[in-house]
Deep mutational scan, measured.
Amino acid sequence: MEVRTIKVFTTVDNINLHTQVVDMSMTYGQQFGPTYLDGADVTKIKPHNSHEGKTFYVLPNDDTLRVEAFEYYHTTDPSFLGRYMSALNHTKKWKYPQVNGLTSIKWADNNCYLATALLTLQQIELKFNPPALQDAYYRARAGEAANFCALILAYCNKTVGELGDVRETMSYLFQHANLDSCKRVLNVVCKTCGQQQTTLKGVEAVMYMGTLSYEQFKKGVQIPCTCGKQATKYLVQQESPFVMMSAPPAQYELKHGTFTCASEYTGNYQCGHYKHITSKETLYCIDGALLTKSSEYKGPITDVFYKENSYTTTIK
């Protein structure tokens, strides 16, 4: 009895394709271990004539594949690729409408935090270190965002349907971005203890939790000093293409032309909904596939993004 075979390709990165001759009487799992086709788990399936010449994702289970996976995804987590594939199996079914010149995501599976993050990423200057993220990001900007969303979920250790947080998501993504040249110098002034300067680099240099107003941050924000008295913390120097200011959701007025974009969060910790506000020729609110415009805006804002380049204080 002759062994019926077909020729397929296996890959971990969709760049390096490895030619395989597979036995049609055995499952993919018996031949390769966990195997995925377009995100779908085909591990328990036997090869079919229609699979001839198709590319299958496999887990990096030998040295060659491990090197290829690390170079593309910059992670050695053995569960990463499987999590990416199972997320992709959902995100490829989502709709990605162009809204006001940006790629958004039609609401499904509690994905409003991903839509808000995706919209924000198209408006701030950011370059990702893992080629996987950078490639998928370019495709997302062009309207094909399924891979990018699935990668975000995998890097953030999230599953489809789980509630997510924009600030946490951005923080994970910033860790995989090139923020080497970003720098922030802060000064804390206390009447009792004097003053202390701190220099922050990388992710810490672009994120701040405690106030939404970048102007206020430049002037000074009140913080408790270690001595128990009130101290003032203010920005001395900022070198970065953008800054992200966050605070627990509270009524906040966004003035046209003073910011790049913002995240609105309605609801409580267990259950809520994100919308995205962007400042173009007027203010726009993007909620999944829905767009509304207004000249002014007041609502429960939790993150505001500002364009920056270089700032030095005039406070002496």
Results as ranks from 00 to 15, higher is better:
Lys54Met: 12
Ser310Pro: 09
Thr199Pro: 01
Tyr138Phe: 13
Thr292Ser: 11
Asp62Arg: 08
Gln31Trp: 13
Tyr84Lys: 08
Trp94Asn: 06
Asn61Leu: 14
Leu37Phe: 13
Thr11Val: 08
Cys112Lys: 03
Gly272Ser: 02
Gln237Cys: 14
Glu168Lys: 15
Leu179Ala: 08
Leu114Thr: 03
Gly220Lys: 02
Pro34Phe: 13
Asp109Trp: 01
Ala154Ser: 11
Gln122Ile: 11
Glu68Lys: 10
Arg66Pro: 05
Ser294Asp: 02
Leu200Arg: 07
Gly267Tyr: 00
Ala289Asn: 11
Ala247Pro: 10
Val304Thr: 08
Thr43Ala: 12
Gly257Tyr: 01
Ser310Asp: 11
Arg4Lys: 14
Tyr72Val: 05
Tyr155Asp: 05
Lys307Asp: 06
Gly257Glu: 02
Val3Gln: 15
Met207Val: 03
Phe242Lys: 01
Ser181Asp: 15
Ala140Gln: 04
Lys95His: 10
Tyr137His: 07
Gly210Asn: 02
Phe148Gln: 06
Ala69Gly: 07
Gln238Pro: 02
Gln134Tyr: 03
Ser171Ala: 12
Glu144Asn: 09
Lys307Tyr: 03
Val160Phe: 07
Ser310Cys: 01
Thr91Glu: 04
Lys92Phe: 10
Tyr284Asn: 01
Glu2Trp: 13
Lys219Gln: 13
Glu71Val: 12
Gln270Ile: 10
Met170Glu: 01
Tyr311Gln: 04
Leu179Ile: 01
Asp135Leu: 07
Ala154Arg: 01
Asn147Ser: 13
Arg66His: 11
Ala231Pro: 03
Pro224Trp: 10
Ala40Cys: 10
Tyr28Gln: 04
Gly82Lys: 10
Phe217Arg: 02
Ala69Ser: 09
Ala262Asp: 05
Gly257Cys: 02
Thr159His: 11
Thr211His: 01
Leu65Thr: 14
His48Leu: 13
Asp38Phe: 10
Leu290Arg: 12
Trp107Lys: 07
Val42Ala: 11
Tyr284Arg: 00
Ser310His: 15
Thr266Val: 07
Pro78Ala: 11
Gln30Lys: 14
Gln251Cys: 07
Ala117Asp: 02
Thr55Val: 13
Val160Ile: 08
Thr35Phe: 09
Thr10Pro: 09
Trp94Cys: 05
Val304His: 01
Gly82Trp: 07
Leu291Ala: 14
Ala108Gln: 13
Phe70Tyr: 13
Tyr137Val: 06
Met244Tyr: 04
Ala145Lys: 10
Leu126Lys: 05
Phe305Thr: 02
Pro130Gln: 05
Thr11Cys: 05
Asp287Glu: 09
Cys190Leu: 04
Thr282Cys: 08
Met24Cys: 14
Tyr137Leu: 12
Ala231Phe: 01
Ser279His: 01
Ala154Pro: 06
Asn309Ser: 15
Glu204Ala: 09
Asp135Lys: 08
Ser240Gln: 03
Ala40Asn: 14
Phe242Gly: 00
Tyr155Phe: 08
Thr169Ile: 10
Asn187Trp: 06
Lys92Pro: 03
Asn187Arg: 14
Phe128Gly: 02
Thr312Arg: 15
Lys158Ile: 00
Ala87Lys: 10
Ser279Cys: 01
Thr91Gly: 07
Gln237Met: 13
Thr292Tyr: 07
Thr169His: 00
Cys285Arg: 02
Leu121Asp: 01
Met209Gly: 05
Leu151Gly: 01
Asp180Met: 02
Thr75Asn: 11
Leu153Glu: 05
Asp165Lys: 06
Asn16Lys: 15
Thr76Ser: 14
Cys190Ala: 01
Ala108Met: 05
Thr192Gln: 13
Asn147Thr: 12
Lys293Tyr: 03
His176Gln: 11
Pro131Ser: 03
Ala154Gly: 05
Lys54Asn: 14
Arg167Ser: 04
Val67His: 12
Asn268Pro: 08
Thr292His: 12
Glu253Gln: 00
Ala177Leu: 06
Glu52Arg: 10
Ala150Phe: 05
Val189Trp: 01
Cys285Trp: 11
Ala108Ile: 02
Leu254Asp: 01
His51Thr: 04
Phe217Cys: 02
Thr211Phe: 15
Phe259Met: 00
Leu153Arg: 10
Met207Thr: 09
Ser181Thr: 13
Thr5Met: 11
Ala87Met: 00
Thr266His: 03
Phe32Leu: 13
Thr226Glu: 13
Met207Arg: 07
Asp13Phe: 03
Gln197Lys: 11
Ile315Glu: 15
Gly299Lys: 10
Glu281Asp: 15
Tyr84Pro: 06
Thr10Cys: 12
Cys261Arg: 01
Arg167Tyr: 03
Thr35Tyr: 04
Lys275Asn: 00
Ala136Met: 06
Pro47Gln: 06
Cys225Leu: 02
Phe32Val: 11
